[in-house]
Design a protein around this nucleic acid. Sequence first.
DNA 1: TAGGCCATCTGGTCCT
DNA 2: AGGACCAGATGGCCTA
Length: 195
Amino acid sequence: MKTKSRPPRRRVPLQDTEATVEEQTPDRPQSGCGSELAKGLRSRTSRAAGTRAEGGRRRQGPGSRRENSIQRRLESNERERQRMHKLNNAFQALREVIPHVRADKKLSKIETLTLAKNYIKSLTSTILTMSSSCLPGLEGPEPSVGPKLYQHYQQQQQQQQQQHVAGAPMGATEVQPQGHLQRYSTQIHSFREGS
DNA sequence: TAGGCCATCTGGTCCT
DNA sequence: AGGACCAGATGGCCTA
């Protein structure tokens, strides 16, 4: 297990591999895995760009098909990195809202997901216990109770909207316990819309 | 040193 | 066609 976070690894571009040594983190030499293409590319390009005046092949300059292919690959790698960074940010955000015993120890991804699932279950159970009298038909801590709870919330929202349209004023001092649910609802809708 | 965790690259597949 | 997503491979870092 880890006790401290690591600095992000630096990528080593497939092109100009040798020229980018200074990009590497000092205590974190480059991962060799992704460099296979770079190695092959380096050896091949050095041949192509080298002193081979003899022989038939025209030198692969910028704009060639292979150069374009490599460029696309590099762009794809960059997008993939960004995607993984976003995923990791989401994991971090999740870690920060999950209570766990050892706050000094960073949760792994699998621990984060497992704890989050259990946390949601326990919260759902708590809600049901506290409000079972007001939410008929939602008794019991069953796995599918989350969607039911949300369904009930939606019904409540519709009723409130109807009342509002009918002119029934919402009490000015009325407590709004659905703040988080409201956000949850908005988020679900935005996910559905792909935003 | 082994094992766990992670970042990154890569090629395939799906989706828009 | 191009981007998003996914899973496998690889290798580095850290801890027990």
